[in-house]
Design a protein around this nucleic acid. Sequence first.
RNA 1: GGGGGAGUGCCCGAGUGGUUAAAGGGGACCGGCUGUAAACCGGUUGGCUCCGCCUACGUAGGUUCGAAUCCUACCUCCCCCA
Length: 409
Amino acid sequence: MRVACFSVRRNPDRLSFEIEARDGLARRARLVTPHGPVETPAFIPLATKGSVRGMSSREVAGFGYQMVLGNTYHLLVAPGPDRIAAAGGLHEFMSWNGAIITDSGGFQVFSLAHGGIAEEIKGTGKKRGGLAATLAIEEEGVRFRSYRDGSELMLSPESSMSVQAALGSDIALAFDECTPFHADRDYTARSTERTSRWLDRCLAWHEEYGPARQAVFGIVQGGTYGDLRRESCQAISQAGVDGIAIGGTLGRDKAEMAEVLGLTVPELPVDAPKHLLGIGEVDDLMHGIGLGLDVFDCAVPTRLARHGMALAPDPERRFRIDIRKSRAAGDSRPLVADCPCTACRDYDRDYLNYISRSEELTAVRLLVEHNLTYMERLMAGARDAISSKAFADYRRSILAGAAPTGCCL
RNA sequence: GGGGGAGUGCCCGAGUGGUUAAAGGGGACCGGCUGUAAACCGGUUGGCUCCGCCUACGUAGGUUCGAAUCCUACCUCCCCCA
């Protein structure tokens, strides 16, 4: 049974979403926020703590990005919503003129308890010492211990929305619990239902006190269970949100992720803007766009860069090249041929290998710029392909090892 | 010429009779990273016919049941006095 009653709160002051072209399920659209448009499909870099690590806001805009993602939990811990509000909101605070979507802190319920997605799936989170920063998950909300000073803090649907109101993001995400991969069906079901109740509370609070020009997205949970995903989709579709994000565990591997998304996306209203949270990698983006998803955010491009990995059209090596490997030493080729980023224009692999191994900050900056440039070109290429009804070919060529064709400068 | 000190695995550096193939760093190599506790986290790093053996703590001898650790000679380096 297809959900038909998607009640987008169509308020152009807050958010509009215009689909401009379709190619199969994929679509090219424009998400217009109070801080400008976002051409979709779009990849959104993370500015978790109010900064895209290693890059100035001006630089990020220069790479072609129109939206970044900030985090409620991290900005609550420091510097705190009051200080950001006093600065005139997060846009002003971080000198970012484009759109901002803020995550609700729901993911931190999961990540602070388990260490991360891979660690939770593999059960290796303990290796990092276990922060135990998530104290309790209750109907009211979640109690955390600040990893900064040990103090206790609570995040609830109301307080998360309140912080996001103070941050003044263009899109606020409803407070949710990201259920772990290892949660059983019973727990996932109860958690997902609670997340739905939390969504209602978020919307009620926002209706009353939230900024008029801030949109609210609900988050689909349900783990890897098809029926729970469906119920979550229905609850959100009927709640009166401005858009929908897909969260929660997407399974053990890419095959399972495809399965879960295959069960989830068709349950959502076609016309709603859809954001796939936390994904991802080059092939994942091609897959998600093919399903009709619009926005993607992920730590991977910036984090990999800090870890010495550059994105590259090499499916055999998971679309990345480890610039610190000795094979890069003495290699006078650019990182990626025809890439317009500084690393590729001005330097060769030999030099990048050397400065990266030397722990020079410049190496990190160059790789972050490269990866962000790569992702934006990948997405720009996808947008162009959709406009010319050639997305299937584009996707095929990218997965076969072709370089992104989009222009972002 | 006289006096003193030091030589340890790729590098630095602990260790002064047995539980030491030898702490700890660094480097190197491999792996991981998907709503960022992450410019981070694991693993490996003498050899082999690998659950045991061989080779190893400057070189060559010696003491001892047993030595990187004690003794002797030699080689090299550093410091001080002439």
